[in-house]
Design a protein around this nucleic acid. Structure first.
Lengths: 345, 345
DNA sequence: CTGAAAGCGCTTACAG
DNA sequence: CTGAAAGCGCTTACAG
């Protein structure tokens, strides 16, 4: 029943060209007359032709696939990161093989040198601590590896300056009176995950406050799992420590969401008794009036994909690094009220 | 530098057989003399030969790959499910293409009919509500589809009897004096996720209590996100409703973990003031002394993979269904103390 | 049980 | 700019 898919031969025949020409059209080879190219393209459209990826891989001698290893927390973050990666890879007719880290066991399997993860043309690794799990911090493969949202001296990387983000948070929140608090994310799969990310943000925050002549006491940092409910528990904790107002750097939008929920439950007004700054800049923060440090996540993903593609094409230089910075987006949750002069310090 | 990988031709030459024979050995074809087979196998080992999967796919005319669509919550559950699936598929020399649902946007993309998810030989879908997102609940593909941890009249499925699990929970907890409580998981991506799972478990629990002449008041059910911190908030909520002891059906081990944490913080002893029953039977429940309804997750995954492989091999019957049941594992968190006679009712 | 051959659907020099 | 041909590394009837 299932009629055979059209092949490059049918296309060539109907377009009255050789199969080589069809292949060139497929691969955007420059030396095809626009006229020929259009003829071929229109036949493909008529036929509903789509090339057989497996044949391409055999003939081309590569997989035209990139492995992406990534944690399965912070799904909104990784979803956006993948958008950026896919954007670039699809232009190159590359596919993605996803290796989500569902558990330490699976991660270990991904990192074994016979793993499928290494059977592709290159690796994109989105997990800070991951390199540290490996013997001398190197992946057991000759294929190119690029880190994204992470850094290592051994590989190309596109990373976010989380420390700077923390300092920016401090610079913004330091304008307000009252004490300072922070939520530091701390995933279960500790070493493997965004662990250092949370630490760097809080470290930057602390340093920024110090520069502003303010301070972040040790016990004003709440270590939380990565979930909105963790944010709720954090606010409960802060309320046991001190009376309002609270100036809170949440370290992630999702944690901030929980803080907002709990604030409402406790009758604390955001922007007044609870000043709150998230991190990520997810779309929904706008409607919630949540101030946040917006990360150019998609751009970071795209940059990493480009670095990897260049390696796949044969670039052999020393590791390169691309740094990204967050942008402060101030909204109602840190709007200075009238009772709170901007010049406070 | 990278020396070419050995091919089937080298193996054939060194083993002094035709390439057809090597191929037969690779595919466990029965008609190969054991002697020949061993000779070929040993040459492969010497050479470090591994077949080129792409060539196989071109020649064989299929992808030898199965798509697995799955949510990215409850990572321990899905990790175990994948173990079961991989077990079966690797025996068949099939690979898995993973499509983790990081966001509604990505899910929608997976379900578009030109999606990569449909370019494989079959689909394994581990998401209850997913079928309801689709036009007349059917996936836009001719390829076989099997649901796992989910049910639909349109497709083969391997599913857990969550309602029964809830009733078993009730039968176990009903032996204790005191009031009853339940935590119902409720993911953000509501319709898409394990939503119905949580509902079914609680519904079964309620019915089971009713059969035992006990009851579960509406407001004794706490709707929680899927995280340990949600379990902590749940216990806080229960404590505002009533004094100890609490008989809590947590609906998932991870939620139960949070209850244990909060109980400790509040000075409530598990098994006495807080009787607690999880769901899943994850390995760590043993060391925590957590009673739980153990799910044969790996077996369910394996069963689904088998159903799919049969469809891929051409089976054309009406949809088949394989039901799985949890097993009660009673530990310290529901151990009747001396002050609590087993015969209470 | 096994070999030689055809074929899977592409890419890529090589000529023109 | 384009075609014809060789080749990628397998599977699978077809003979024997």
């Amino acid at each position: 029943m299932a009629k055979r898919k059209p092949t490059i031969h049918e296309v060539a025949h109907l377009a009255q060209v050789g199969i080589g020409t069809v292949s060139r059209v497929l691969n955007n080879h420059p030396s095809v007359r626009p006229e020929t190219r259009n003829r071929v393209l229109s036949v493909m459209a008529d036929l509903g032709y789509s090339p057989n990826p497996h044949a391409r891989r055999v003939a081309g001698g590569r997989s035209y696939t990139v492995s992406v290893i990534l944690p399965v927390i912070s799904t909104e973050f990784y979803s956006r990161l993948l958008e950026g990666i896919e954007q670039v890879l699809s232009e190159e007719r590359y596919e993605i093989a996803l290796f989500p880290i569902f558990s330490p066991t699976r991660l270990r399997r991904y990192l074994e040198n016979r793993s499928l993860a290494y059977q592709t043309d290159g690796l994109l690794v989105a997990s800070q601590g991951l390199a540290y799990l490996l013997p001398n911090q190197k992946f057991p493969t000759e294929r190119p590896v690029v880190l994204v949202d992470a850094y290592s001296p051994h590989y190309d990387s596109a990373y976010m300056d989380n420390y700077l983000g923390g300092r920016m948070a401090a610079a913004h929140l330091a304008q307000f009176p009252g004490e300072f608090f922070a939520i530091q994310m701390q995933e279960e799969l500790d070493e493997v995950m965004r662990n250092t990310v949370g630490r760097e943000r809080v470290a930057g925050f602390r340093e920024g406050l110090r520069e502003a002549g303010r301070s972040l006491p040790e016990d004003h940092v709440f270590a939380s799992r990565f979930s909105a409910d963790g944010g709720r528990l954090a606010l409960q904790y802060f309320m046991r420590l001190a009376p309002p107002p609270y100036n809170i750097f949440a370290g992630a939008d999702l944690l901030a969401l929980g803080v907002l929920e709990e604030a409402e439950r406790q009758g604390l007004r955001p922007g007044e008794e609870v000043r709150l700054l998230g991190f990520d800049g997810h779309p929904w923060t706008e409607t919630r009036g949540l101030s946040t440090l917006a990360q150019p996540i998609e751009a970071m993903g795209a940059a990493a994909a480009r670095l990897l593609m260049e390696r796949i094409r044969g670039y052999r230089g020393t590791p390169r690094t691309q740094r990204f910075e967050p942008t402060l987006v101030a909204r109602a949750s840190t709007r200075p009220g009238p009772e709170c002069p901007k010049s406070f310090a």
